[in-house]
Design a protein around this nucleic acid. Structure first.
Length: 423
RNA sequence: GGAGACGUCGCAUAGUCUGGUCUAGUGCGCCACCCUGCUAAGGUGGUAACGGGGCAACCCGUUCGAGGGUUCGAAUCCCUCCGUCUCCGCCA
């Protein structure tokens, strides 16, 4: 949710942001109008209510003679109060509805849509398989040879976009996620294993129930949502709390399964485990002061790059364009690894600065110098996911069908240096 | 799944039976000041969030787990839901 004070004091900045995103700037004026009507309705209600309370006190002290007249008066007032309250509630609901549609105010992201990202940098060198004299196999072919990935049985048991990680595949995922957890731990993050089912208000608070609500699994019987990332549970962790950031940001590293319906992606990335309904992820999540958010964002990006270096992948960093940002994000950097068999980059990490957008909805505040409370900023970033296996297998494959284990992962695989084919 | 108890201002608790004097009391903690060789003890005052109005001091409203109802008036009565605890049953 955007800041109401900003809306009142500088609506043009929000209109600008909406335009940058390719969203409707007219929502800002609808919100201003609804806000004005809510305030006048509220004033009416509060005046009437104050009168009702003072009359109520007189009733209590009145003598038996005076009482009937007072009661008649106050009875009438009670009806008015009820009506005013209904008006006020309706206006507030209207404002909420408009506010919910306004996305976070963009902060520094380049203008344009999905293809208008800016490449911040390239790191590492893509291998020249032609020069090495062999045709690279794709991750599924490699994974099947290693006995690491089984999509056929995944489909048999759970349907398309499900898979089993077996043998060295299972070990590889655990190794990767443990390495991610250790990286986070070393950087001062508090490790957390989160719930993966959350209540509607938490899912809504993180901004995932907007336009892309059909991406999310919902359990109707219990009215719970399956999270698409532990970001949701970590954002909810301090909801409705006044946190203490005087010793610096609160930093968490969440480990969880993630569930995505992948509605609307039919026919896209259907082979292998690039785009799946369920995977595991280690996610960084920070609560910071507003002024510290941009610095923290850089720090999260650095940690992501550290993990990419650890598994020795060539990648690029992109600064996502405003039109391609999620509704909660003010700015977002993705790290994309090179995928040799598809001659393209594949998103492995994504770090967003959500400024106060999520925290405002979720009621996460801090106390500054015994003054009033202030909404904090929230940020998130990926440190490792099942998908990384795709890039690792493809980039480190060898001519004989084996896969070199990047040195950084060897300690997590009992020193294993090469994954050998089993068939 | 069954039975019961409970959910009050950071924590602990009073208030609920018998609706209005609750502008929610008290203790602890915390903050400021006073007293004071230092510390401890003591004294005085303050001590929620959110929203509305005002240049401001301040005023007003909402919130006693959540929502609804009864009533002129609800922490207090009624209903529904959520949560916690205890016991019983069942089961990874």
């Amino acid at each position: 949710m955007i800041d109401l004070n900003l809306l009142r004091e500088d609506p043009e900045s929000i209109r600008d942001s909406q335009r940058l995103r390719g969203e409707d700037p007219g929502l800002v004026d609808q919100a201003l109008d609804a806000d004005a009507r809510r305030r006048s309705a509220l004033a009416e209600f509060e005046t009437a209510r104050a009168e009702q309370k003072s009359l109520g006190k007189q009733v209590a002290q009145a003598s038996a003679d005076e009482r009937p007249a007072l009661l008649a008066q106050t009875k009438q007032l009670a009806e008015q109060v009820k009506a005013f309250q209904a008006d006020s509630n309706a206006a507030a609901a209207e404002l909420d509805e408009v506010l919910a549609q306004i996305q976070n105010v963009v902060e520094g992201a380049p203008p344009g849509g999905e293809d208008d990202y800016i490449v911040v940098k390239h790191v590492g060198q893509a291998r020249d398989f032609a020069a090495e004299g062999f045709e690279p196999a794709d991750h599924l072919a490699i994974g099947e040879r290693l006995g690491a990935i089984d999509t056929a049985r995944g489909a048999k048991v759970s349907g398309s976009r499900f898979y089993y990680l077996t043998g060295v595949g299972a070990r590889l995922e655990l190794a990767l996620l443990n390495a991610a957890m250790d990286t986070a731990l070393a950087a001062g993050f508090n490790p957390v294993i989160t719930p993966t089912l959350v209540k509607p208000e938490i899912m809504a608070g993180t901004g995932f129930l907007g336009r892309h609500a059909d991406e999310i699994y919902h359990l109707g019987t219990d009215d719970l949502y399956l999270v698409g990332t532990s970001e949701v549970a970590l954002a909810g962790f301090h909801s409705d709390e006044i946190v203490d950031l005087s010793d610096g940001p609160l930093r968490y590293a969440g480990w969880s399964a993630c569930y995505r319906r992948e509605a609307g992606s039919h026919g896209k990335d259907v082979r292998g485990i690039i785009r799946v309904h369920q995977f595991h992820k280690v996610e960084m999540f920070s609560y910071t002061r507003v002024a510290d958010a941009a610095d923290e964002h850089r720090r999260l990006l650095e940690l992501e790059e550290k993990m990419l270096a650890l598994v020795d992948l060539p990648y690029r960093v992109i600064d996502t364009a405003a039109g391609d940002l999620g509704s909660s994000a003010a700015r977002k950097f993705d790290c994309e690894a090179w995928l040799p068999t598809q001659q393209r980059y594949l998103e492995l990490t994504s770090t967003s600065n959500c400024t106060t957008y999520q925290a405002r909805r979720l009621g996460v505040r801090e106390r500054v110098d015994s003054g009033p409370t202030q909404t904090v900023a929230t940020l998130n970033g990926t440190l490792g996911t099942t998908r990384w296996i795709v890039a690792i297998l493809e980039n480190h494959q060898q001519a004989d069908g084996s896969v070199r284990v990047p040195e950084g992962l060897r300690p997590y695989l009992g020193g294993l240096e090469v994954l050998e084919p089993v068939r």
